[in-house]
Nucleic acid binder design. Sequence first.
RNA 1: GCGGAUGUGGCGGAAUGGCAGACGCGCUAGCCUUAGGAGCUAGUGUCCUCGACGUGGGGGUUCAAGUCCCUUCAUCCGCACCA
Length: 803
Amino acid sequence: MDYKAIEQKWNKIWQDKNLYAFDKSKADKKYYVLEMFSYPSGANLHLGHWYNYGPTDSFARFKRMQGYKVFQPMGFDAFGLPAENYAIKTGIHPKDSTMKNIATMEKQLKNMGAMFDWNAEIYTCAPEYYKWTQWLFLQLYKKGLAYQKLSPVNWCSSCNTVIANEQVVDGKCERCGTQIVRKEMTQWFFKITDYAEELLRDLDKIDWPEKTKLMQRNWIGRSEGGEVEFTLESGDVFRVFTTRADTLYGVSYVVLAPEHPLVDKITTPEQKAAVEAYKSETAKASDIDRLSTAKEKTGCFTGAYCINPVNGEKVPVWIADYCLATYGTGAVMGVPAHDTRDFEFAKKFGLPVKRVVKSADGKNDELPYVEYGVNVNSAEFDGMKTADAKRAILKKLEKAGKGGVKVNYRLRDWSVSRQRYWGAPIPVIHCPHCGAVPVPEKDLPVELPYNVNFTPDGKSPLGKCEEFMNVTCPVCGAPAKRDADTLDTFVCSSWYYLRYPDAKNAEKPFDGEFIDKMLPVDKYVGGAEHACMHLLYSRFITKALRDMGYIHFDEPFKSLVHQGVILGPDGTRMSKSKGNIINPDKYVDEYGSDTFRMYLMFGFSYMEGGPWSDDGIKSVSKFLDRVERMVLKDHPAEKVDKAAEKELAYALNYCIKCVTADMEAFSFNTAIARIMELVNTMYKTDGKVSPALMEETSDTLIKILAPIVPHIAEELYSLKGGKDSVFNASYPVCDESKLVKDEIELAVQINSRVKAKINVPSSADNAEIEKIALSDPKVIEALAGAAVKKAIVIKGRLINLVV
RNA sequence: GCGGAUGUGGCGGAAUGGCAGACGCGCUAGCCUUAGGAGCUAGUGUCCUCGACGUGGGGGUUCAAGUCCCUUCAUCCGCACCA
């Protein structure tokens, strides 16, 4: 077969017939298959794209043949850092390089032969799209879910610019090697924490991999505890969050995050220099380093003292980098006797260690003692069990107005400001009189200007573009400035699945009534690396839009699958620097896109991925030749053998049954294994079965294969006389009556070791099976007269005789 | 450091607690062909035969463990400004 000619032929026919366009009037029978859209970073589709889109398209085709109206769109997540970095390096404008990359990738995606509905294509960098991304920002702002605050960024003083985490290597700027420091800037945030509880709870409602749900649960990080208010000598107050309020009598110091707003105010003149030095040291460390328990504890005394609200004790206030400003209240109480980190800290700085909990059996175990137990040295709470003491102490604090029960989340609000050019401009105007003013919706989109200077020099590129920046305030008309930052690209991708079904709507981001019919996405397929960010942001945006009344469902993705990662032949992640990149084009060129796709489906466990190998693809190619020969040949019946006919009918229906289940479960490698078994049986029984049965089997085989090798199956289908597309045919259904066997083989175990095989009628009950087993000569020999204490029969599998 | 995963023949990988290694690659042999890097058929976990041993290591639960529990080792991924 001339694969290239066939691919071109059918791609053109499918396109001319508009075979894969979604019929919006059939939304009631919809099945929404969505692959995570591509970032057009390189000029070509890489193997990861192929692995995501090829097999998933086969799943979509399978669903179509099952009678669903499949909607499978494709688009591009086109804003982002790499295009901008490329521009800084080469001078080629991000828009130009991105649009060029998109054009190439579109062409390759079309050659892949996936049934994408190109009528619904979107690019996030198109004004027609980001207009609505900006609209989304404005709705969140109106709803009180977008706000500004000071937040640290990575700052490179040599490049004079903000650096992404990715560009920080060992704490240094990857471009110039300068030590990165963290610098506070005013930035926009989305209040995802308002939804922490629902985001956690609704995980129970969705069909997602358990590990992904677990990761989100841990990311959200709900912990129940309490807040305790400490009063400084200056009269200022601050609160700490703790899960161990029962240890409050053991507090011997408190720690503020070095970034805590009170630090400057309370530091005594004698400590000023030391505190400043410590703060600038901390600015160099990443959160990951700061939280490492392996690292030696560091800290600095502020010179200030505060009052423990339960016992009036005066304790010193320190700053230390193991306390993060972004978690809890940015302050922790130090209880060295009952916390490992606090213990190390106290030991290093000579702070007192005071036991307030001992184990329930009354033993004074070694300190730090972090287990639950019974309170001691805790005034009226002595003798209480940990759980009771927590409650009682928090109650006392609550009465005194000094704290109380509190649930805390590790989840932080979503920072969406980026000091970059290639993104959706933030639709806000900063007016000297009115402050931050949202751009009126009628003025959207705030278009990204083309002519800007990317050279990093301390300002956002947009900030240097006068005609962009200078506007009049929509409220008072005074001269004002636009927000010079752009939105995090995750904002663009947090709602794109809502845009696809109504991608060309010029009046609205989407028609709510129609979207309610089309969503949620029935099957979402993409990489596991998005578990905690994109997949959480999308859930948040869906819930926020629901609460604003735009949509009426709770979750965007009903069912989720992660494909694995294909590694280089050396078993490590593919990268340019390692030179182990596999280019799919080479194989598509040599073997055709169907064969390449089928190899991706057969050679790996889809959810696992694994190292690439050249060896298997040839075997898939051979297998397809073998199919072609069998399906197209004449099938003379030399002598029709009933047993052979039964065997073939069994093989066919068993194949249908297994492949249907395997396709549904994304277990493509085993689905293909079952198809290979069927073809092997066809070869084995050819000539011994009636031509009619062989023809029927061939026709069915073509339909089973169609989702996996769409062009080849379409060609075979038409060569066999099919008039319409095979993708308008329905998927074969298993005839259970053909799977009934007269006799089944069972293994006979004696004390769990297999000693013999027996054939029993499929209708035999347990007693009969035992009787047959005990009369088998091999079994008699192996038993050697021993008495059977117990016989365990597992239907269709084995019988185990315990002696 | 925290969080998530993985570990099965020479290789890719199969196994609702029920005959470990489906299917394929590779390898071996036979057939076929003027020819084969084509095709068809058979064999192929390890060890010395009966048999024994085998799912990273060690322990446990069970009639039965790759699968469940405990422990240990190794490798990989994510960690909030890469997308």
